[in-house]
Simulated assay, not measured.
Amino acid sequence: MSWLVDKDWWMKTYRGLIVKSMKLSFEMDQQATDLLSKMLDGRGNVIEFDEMKNLFKEYNESIVFGCGPSLLPDLDFLLESGNLRNKLLISADGATSVLINHDIIPHIVVTDLDGLIADIAWASLKGSVIVIHAHGDNIERIERFVPMFKGRLIGSTQVEPRPHVYNFGGFTDGDRGVFLSRTLGILRITLAGFDLNGEPYSCPGKLVPFNKRIKKKKLEVAKTLLKELVSKGVGFFNVRGEPYVL
């Protein structure tokens, strides 16, 4: 069981910011985490964090793909400029569908299982490491979808870690992908498809209803968490290599 983010800081942030603003239940988040841990136990395709870190040790830059309105133009620019090369590609949930439709298989997919599961399962078959996140609102989806993934799996949580389920930090799939990148030792991160300052948005194919008010709160939490990483020396850039302004 591993904390890969500072436990004291994270639990203070989780209880003081995330639980209060999103009205979450620690107990339900922990129940989901315990379930995911049990479902991953004994599966031959589960990897641990040290294995994942070793897989991607050659990368010192990453691109994290969110599913905001800017994803398509950002991706077009990256393809035209050749700036996808030699970077660790981390996809947040629904952004995976856009990537595979452009014949791009991300190295890692971070998901709480509310995107297009068929596309995420396809990425899994093609080699993506799938980071499955457990929280109180996706218990049913964990039970239903975890057995579908045939490629490498690892679990994540926002509460107490359990065997095979790690706390990397992060709340939404997008900012959790960023925290994961930092945990892998990468301090220069390009944000593609991140629209933290715009109108709330929804990825295509979402399995849960879109709520504009809740999405706005989630984006505000994500922005606050990313600012914390800036204070710890992480550099964020847009697809043109310019500093990303949070």
Rank of each mutant, 00 (worst) to 15 (best):
S124R: 02
N167F: 01
S156L: 02
W122V: 14
D119V: 03
F171R: 10
A134M: 02
H164F: 14
V146L: 08
R141M: 14
E160W: 09
R144D: 09
F145W: 07
D119K: 09
A121E: 14
R144T: 14
F171Y: 15
I120E: 13
V129C: 14
K126Q: 13
H164M: 11
G155S: 07
R162N: 07
G136Q: 07
P163F: 07
A118M: 11
V129S: 09
I139S: 06
H133V: 08
G115I: 10
G177R: 11
V129R: 12
D173T: 15
G174V: 12
G170A: 03
A121N: 11
I117E: 04
A121Y: 03
D137R: 11
L153A: 05
T157Y: 00
F171C: 12
I130H: 11
P163M: 09
H135D: 01
K126D: 09
R176F: 04
N138G: 04
R152E: 14
N167T: 15
V146C: 04
P161R: 05
A118K: 15
R141L: 09
E160T: 13
E140P: 02
V131H: 11
V146W: 08
A134Y: 01
V129P: 11
I120V: 15
V165I: 00
V165W: 02
F168H: 02
R144C: 09
Q158H: 11
K150V: 15
H133E: 01
R162G: 07
R162H: 12
I139V: 14
F149V: 01
I154H: 12
G170L: 03
V165Q: 04
P163N: 06
T172A: 06
V146M: 07
